[in-house]
Computed example of a mutant assay.
Amino acid sequence: MIAEWRARGASGDVEAMLNIARIAARTPEDADEAEQWLRRACEQGSLEAMRLLGATLAKKGDLEEGELLLRSSAEAGHVEAMYTLYHYYDWRGLPDEAQKVWDSIPDGR
């Protein structure tokens, strides 16, 4: 299955890229591979990849790029990214920013 996803990912299939990245992210020694697949999916315009990569980078300490990706995905309407960005701002101790994001999340929370 993974070999098939790699072939599909290499051909530009974003879902395959996300699947490979999710599997690779489970193992610390494969974290760089996960990040590479997420970056490729971001280049294809995947809002989910932006959310995942943004969260990953923030956890690694790259707060600037992590926040940029999370914000980009959230501002494009990705609801899960809105929640992730909310928690990111809360984690950073930025309650005003967190509240702005919370207020932007569509009803149905």
Rank of each mutant, 00 (worst) to 15 (best):
M1Y: 14
I2S: 12
A3P: 09
E4G: 11
R6P: 00
A7G: 04
A7C: 11
A7R: 13
R8A: 14
A10E: 07
A10R: 02
S11Q: 08
V14G: 09
E15R: 06
L18D: 01
L18P: 00
A25V: 03
R26I: 11
R26Y: 14
P28D: 10
E29F: 03
D30V: 10
A31P: 07
D32I: 14
D32Y: 04
A34L: 05
E35N: 02
L38I: 02
L38D: 02
R39M: 13
R39E: 09
R40F: 00
E43P: 04
E43F: 04
Q44T: 12
G45Y: 01
G45K: 00
S46G: 11
L47K: 04
L47G: 09
A49G: 02
A49K: 08
M50V: 04
R51P: 09
L52K: 09
L52S: 11
L52Q: 13
G54F: 03
G54V: 03
G54T: 10
A55M: 15
A58P: 01
A58W: 08
K59N: 02
K59R: 12
K60E: 01
L63A: 08
E65V: 01
G66N: 02
E67N: 01
E67K: 15
L68V: 01
L69K: 00
R71C: 00
R71V: 03
S72P: 03
S72D: 12
E75R: 14
H78Y: 15
H78C: 13
H78P: 12
V79G: 00
E80C: 04
A81P: 03
T84Y: 05
Y86E: 15
Y88I: 01
Y89H: 06
D90F: 07
W91M: 07
W91T: 11
R92G: 08
R92A: 04
G93R: 01
G93V: 06
L94N: 10
E97S: 13
Q99L: 13
W102T: 02
W102L: 12
D103L: 13
D103M: 09
S104C: 07
I105D: 08
P106I: 02
D107G: 11
D107I: 04
D107E: 12
G108W: 02
